[in-house]
């Protein structure tokens, strides 16, 4: 064992980490500082922390005013509905699809799996016009159901890809044991397989939830002209052609980020397990 544990290399590594932390932490600092400044201060001294007079009102103003939805508050509710709905549908559809694709070894299931992989690689914007026409004909433009359906369809290939990979690495013995223990197909699925998928379900929920939560492009196309708005769309309401309320934009952005942070911190253990793909019995 070497006697000197703290070397020049350690110092170099630490410096790199500090620079990286600053690069990631800097924008957060600005976000918090600017969200608490007054309209004037944010233009003149955007980096100075408003220690004397933090404008907590900015959050209340952002929460209740502006845009089609009438503030970040209603948009927050819309976004929660759309995100929860989409993630729930995605989990049900993708877990079942992934299970079948992973466990069936026929050529058809291999071909279907490839189709899903293809779905991940092809940009969804390519199909935007026909999707818009179909959605309009079905009367789904500017509705919760429409957005949930759309997000589910767009993200299913990605979620199926994640589930299939995880289930393929999962020993079949658990299912075989359940079969031997007298469980039917449904019982095996509900009592054994789905609980074992918890780590990957957390990963799928986190990743797809984040995508749906931050979705701007689809929202601007499919929610335009309606009373429903998600958070990114609503955030844009504070940006005007001639003048932007940066303090409100930042307060709104903080409102967008906070729930994501809370969920991530709550689920991070499961989330990491899902990525590692491991399962110990």
């Amino acid at each position: 064992m070497s006697g000197r544990r703290y070397t020049v290399r350690s110092l170099g590594r630490e410096l790199v980490m500090i620079v990286l932390a600053a690069a990631y932490g800097g924008p957060f600092y600005m976000l918090v500082v600017m969200s608490l400044q007054s309209k004037d201060d944010v233009q003149q001294t955007p980096f100075a922390p408003p220690i004397d007079d933090p404008q907590w009102d900015n959050y209340a103003t952002a929460w209740t005013t502006g845009g089609a939805a009438g503030g970040m508050g209603p948009a927050f509710v819309d976004t929660v509905i759309i995100t929860l709905g989409s993630v729930l549908c995605l989990i049900v559809v993708s877990a079942l699809t992934g299970y079948v694709l992973a466990r069936r070894t026929s050529r058809l299931s291999n071909a279907l799996y490839l189709l899903f992989v293809l779905g991940v690689t092809i940009p969804s914007t390519l199909g935007l016009v026909p999707i818009y026409v179909v959605m309009r004909n079905l009367g789904l433009l500017g509705t919760y159901q429409g957005m949930i359906l759309l997000n589910t369809a767009m993200l299913t290939p990605f979620a199926v890809f994640l589930y299939t990979g995880f289930i393929r690495a999962l020993p079949r013995e658990f299912e075989e044991a359940a079969q031997m223990d007298g469980a039917g197909m449904f019982g095996t699925l509900v009592r054994v397989v789905l609980p074992l998928l918890r780590p990957i379900t957390a990963t799928v929920a986190m990743l797809t939830g984040l995508i749906v939560w931050n979705e701007y492009f689809l929202a601007i196309v499919f929610l335009a002209g309606s009373e429903i708005a998600n958070l990114p769309l609503q955030l844009n309401a504070f940006v005007n052609d001639y003048y932007t309320d940066w303090n409100l934009v930042m307060a709104g952005a903080a409102i967008c980020i906070l729930p994501v942070l809370v969920v991530f911190l709550a689920l991070q253990k499961q989330f990491m397990k899902g990525f590692a793909g491991g399962l110990r019995g």
């Binding site: 020993p171 013995e173 075989e176 044991a177 359940a178 223990d181 074992l196 110990r280 019995g281």
Partner: peptide, 13 residues
């Protein structure tokens, strides 16, 4: 029939 597997296959959850 009851089966005991090589890796036991105990339900981890």
């Amino acid at each position: 029939l009851a089966m005991v597997f090589q890796n036991y296959a105990l339900y981890p959850h």
